[in-house]
């Protein structure tokens, strides 16, 4: 039984079958990648996992509870944090505030009217945020505006924000899309460090095979809305069906 269980999910857009009979099981403390060529249904699947889309049929269970029909903040409170394709951070706030907000959200829930306390007096949260920033080597940038960071630092900050919540599942949506090779390698290193340092469950949606093979424990290959195979990276590499899906029939 995995922490995330997708069962018989179907999603149609008009006449287009975006997902048909998708089954997926993400095991705890593993890195599970979902790959596939353009139009395979990766984004649709992700949107079903985070409550943005509701499948026509099928179920998505996280930690024993259904995520269907829940709002993004409720799904986060269940223990799923999400990293976006382009880093989504609070650009007008300082790096330190960016990290404090998710810690507050984790401690206080989706809303709390703490309008008369001072942020500076929340010792626990300040200390925790300092530890999180130290973890990603960004402590010296704590007072900078997040919008002024380089793209790599923004990605690092977003990752730190997600990790500060100690999520049960970290969802990554094409974390290296549009990146130069060097940046891609940095991101892979960062993710590998995170994986090595703590027990974490990650689910990566990715187009780039290179990223996936250097990170994942298990890989699901999606093509035309259906999972073709699910296996370890080594087995996937040589699998004829995968080559077919990526390179066409001739290969």
């Amino acid at each position: 039984m995995g922490i995330l269980e997708v069962k018989n999910v179907n999603k149609n857009f008009g006449g287009l079958k975006a997902l048909s009979e998708v089954n997926l099981s993400v095991k705890e403390n593993s890195v599970h990648a979902i790959i596939g060529p353009n139009g395979a249904g990766k984004s649709t699947l992700l949107n079903c996992l985070i409550g943005k889309l509701i499948p026509d049929t099928g179920s998505v269970m996280f930690d024993g509870q259904s995520v269907l029909g829940r709002k993004p903040h409720e799904i986060n409170q269940m223990g799923i944090s999400r990293v976006f394709q382009t880093p989504e951070i609070f650009g007008d706030l300082t790096v330190f505030e960016n990290v404090m907000i998710p810690i507050f959200a984790k401690r206080d829930g989706s809303f709390r009217m703490h309008a008369f306390e001072s942020v500076a007096h929340e010792r626990d949260i300040v200390e925790e945020a300092e530890a999180v920033l130290a973890d990603v080597n960004m402590l010296e940038k704590r007072d900078l505006h997040a919008a002024s960071l380089s793209r790599g630092d923004k990605r690092r900050l977003e990752m730190a924000m997600c990790l500060s919540q100690k999520p049960k599942l970290l969802l990554l949506d094409e974390p290296t899309a549009g990146m130069a090779r060097a940046d891609t390698n940095n991101t892979i290193d960062l993710l590998n460090q995170i994986k090595a340092k703590r027990d974490i469950t990650m689910c990566i949606i990715e187009h780039d095979m290179h990223v996936v093979f250097s990170l994942a424990d298990r890989i699901t290959v999606l093509a035309q809305g259906t999972p073709l195979v699910e296996d370890t990276p080594d087995k996937i590499k040589g699998h004829p069906k995968v080559q077919e899906a990526y390179l066409g029939e001739a290969a």
């Binding site: 903040h73 609070f90 650009g91 505030e97 404090m100 907000i101 989706s110 919540q165």
Partner: peptide, 23 residues
């Protein structure tokens, strides 16, 4: 206050706020 910080976060990026577990 933390409340004021959250209000500034609403202005800055509501998408991130929602996916950070805040309503």
């Amino acid at each position: 206050s933390p409340f004021g910080m959250m209000l500034r976060a609403v202005k800055s990026n509501q998408q991130r706020l929602n996916y950070t577990g805040l309503n």
